[in-house]
Nucleic acid binder design. Structure first.
Lengths: 233, 233
DNA sequence: TTTTATTATTGTTTAAAATACAATAAGATG
DNA sequence: CATCTTATTGTATTTTAAACAATAATAAAA
């Protein structure tokens, strides 16, 4: 079809965008509505799409994430590709793809990216009928996800856990600009699946020269307010 | 062309296979001979090729590596994809692809794999005109490599360095079945780009319950022979 | 104002791991 | 037997990680 000149329908990108709500890790998903035999069916998918012919993979990921969520200047990092011949075999997915893309779709190899962002960033959808929302990672099991997106999310989570071991500074991408040491500790524990000691954690933090204590405390808590810090590399 | 039914000419796999010769890390490359305007031109490429339509990525990597090197039962692990629209723009590469594949080739996204193997494994090429050899990683800079294979090798090396931090047991894939502690230490230093202390390393080794001391010593050295060990998980 | 409840903040002791450092033993060769 | 080369081994020190609880600050309730 004519779109083949613009799109490369054999390769796509998908973005696994993580956020942190103060207690748990969340992932950003797009609502998908499919009418199948006059029944409205609703499920979720990762922000992703096929690439353009004249576009490298990183550019494609940034573009697609922006088109579907309005997010800009997000540091996306490629972590894995998924390309089994069966990943585009679900009739519901095929139907949706052909409706959305106006293209005959065969096998698609997708290149997956992860990003860590502050959960309060504004999500602004550009197309009607599209909606993007944060979902709890613990609820993935009971959620209807398109294609092999459940597997992609799981692998993405594995990847950031490793990545945050290697580059601990990336943690601060998930926190608000001003945060308390408790927030940092809870996030750290969620990511590493540990329960760290409050005093020992404080000691570690004291050695982080890139952590700047502010002259402010948190607001709106019904008890003693904690001091705020910011990250400065 | 008719091969499109069998091959998926938009996606390929490439294998970065590492070996260790006792002193340095090596990578396995395929010789490539191209006749260009009656001039014979010689360079190297990674073992890799486009995938089949009905084949997942891991299977494709195993198949292609076997076809080009005779290696079987190699643990290949995917580490990154490369898909810039310019990666198949070199006329020499285009010519070679179309001659070899009998296909009109456009843009190809390649999914790259790494493997660690014992350098004494038999390499047996199945096609005439093809040859596979080990090359020193330190000589990459002065070597003619096809496509973006220089970059892929560099990223592959980065990847195994990280991977070996996380799973140190993978080191033993690179050593012969029986090895000395010196060999293990030198390999470890090459991989981590360190110079470890002989005594401290011995101490670490003593705690590795999966290292079995054999009742044998190395052979053919013009000085005191070192004891041999084997790895047993 | 006082009491109560809730979370914030802070040190010390002990155990484990990493580092620095060199003398002696074993075997090969002439 | 003397010499050369590499293998093998221990101790002291520093650094890092882990275990463990009392007091301070503030908000809310009495």
């Amino acid at each position: 079809m004519s779109n083949e000149n613009i799109y490369n329908p054999h390769v796509s990108v998908d973005c696994v965008v993580f956020g942190f709500d103060g207690e748990r890790l969340k992932v950003l998903l797009i609502e998908r509505n499919i009418t199948e035999q006059n029944e409205l069916y609703n499920d979720k998918k990762l922000p992703g799409s096929i690439i353009l012919q004249d576009e490298n993979l990183d550019e494609a990921a940034s573009r697609v994430l922006n088109e579907l969520t309005g997010l800009k200047n997000i540091y996306l990092s490629q972590f894995r590709s998924f390309g089994g011949p069966d990943r585009t075999k679900n009739p519901r997915d095929i139907l949706w793809l052909e409706n959305t893309m106006q293209l005959k779709i065969g096998r698609i190899v997708t290149v997956a990216y992860v990003a860590l962002i502050k959960i309060d960033r504004k999500i602004q959808v550009k197309y009607e009928n599209t909606q993007a929302n944060w979902y709890d990672l613990n609820e993935m099991a009971s959620m209807n996800l398109a294609f092999d997106h459940a597997e992609i999310i799981k692998k993405g989570l594995d990847h950031i856990r490793h990545q945050l071991d290697v580059e601990p500074h990336l943690l601060f991408e998930l926190l608000p600009k001003k945060f308390t040491i408790s927030q940092l500790r809870i996030l750290n524990d969620v990511v590493h699946q540990t329960r760290s000691d409050v005093r020992n954690f404080q000691k570690k933090v004291a050695q982080m020269s890139y952590l700047v204590m502010l002259d402010e405390v948190e607001d709106g808590v019904p008890h003693r307010a904690a001091r705020l810090y910011k990250y400065k590399k």
